[in-house]
């Protein structure tokens, strides 16, 4: 085992450890923890600032446990900044399954490669030859079940300065858009 291997394994161990340690967050406002991630009311009341542990994420919902009980919240109800690592604390079920992989070297596209590479206009020409007419594109979309959404909302632009801070979201779906409470947005 060489020194690089030891350093890498130590790094992975610290990373995994940090996931566990960071898994304590707080709720932003007084809320009820829901029995299911479906927008229906729940019975467990939790005060703003209460520390919760995020157990898992499902869609836009997170299952949390608190001293009062366990239940579901929309992801935006959690103040991830209190834990320091944000939604890193969410156990997606994929941790520890071998996704943290190191390779000895990455082929191409390092900063050095970008600076020293020789322009390849032949491949640009190949790229430009690819085209889709509107009927083929529509067929592709239909095959994939893609339905356009008339979205007349926008995500708040002030988050860059407030990432992890107080909620500043201004997105409000039009009545005809999105899922209503009880629509079963639990996937």
């Amino acid at each position: 085992m060489n020194i690089d291997c030891i350093i890498y394994k130590l790094g992975v161990a610290l990373l995994v450890l940090s996931f566990g340690m960071a898994n304590a967050q707080t709720v932003k406002d007084d809320v009820s923890l829901l029995d299911k991630p479906d927008g229906q009311t729940g019975s467990v009341k939790v005060k703003a600032g209460t520390q919760v542990k995020v157990l898992k994420r499902q869609g836009f919902w997170v299952e949390v446990s608190s001293s009062s009980g366990q239940g579901w919240l929309k992801i935006s109800a959690i103040n991830f900044s209190s834990g320091g690592d944000g939604p890193i604390a969410i156990d997606t079920g994929r941790l520890g399954k071998g996704n943290i992989v190191s390779t000895s070297a990455a082929r191409g596209l390092s900063a050095k490669d970008l600076l020293q590479g020789k322009p390849n206009f032949d491949d640009v020409a190949k790229l430009e030859k690819l085209s889709f007419d509107s009927s083929a594109l529509q067929a592709f979309r239909s095959e994939g079940g893609l339905q356009p959404v008339n979205l007349n909302i926008s995500l708040s632009s002030s988050v860059a300065a407030k990432a992890g801070g107080a909620p500043v979201g201004s997105a409000t779906p039009a009545p005809s858009e999105g899922k209503k409470k009880g629509d079963g947005d639990d996937w």
């Binding site: 991830f80 890193i88 339905q147 979205l151 909302i153 995500l155 990432a163 992890g164 500043v168 899922k179």
Partner: peptide, 22 residues
């Protein structure tokens, strides 16, 4: 990426409509 996640969630990401089918 953690900052990017936080920024998106704070911006109101979970108010975006999801497709009707899973």
């Amino acid at each position: 990426p953690v900052e990017r996640l936080n920024a998106l969630v704070t911006a109101g990401l979970d108010r975006l409509p999801r497709p009707a089918t899973k």
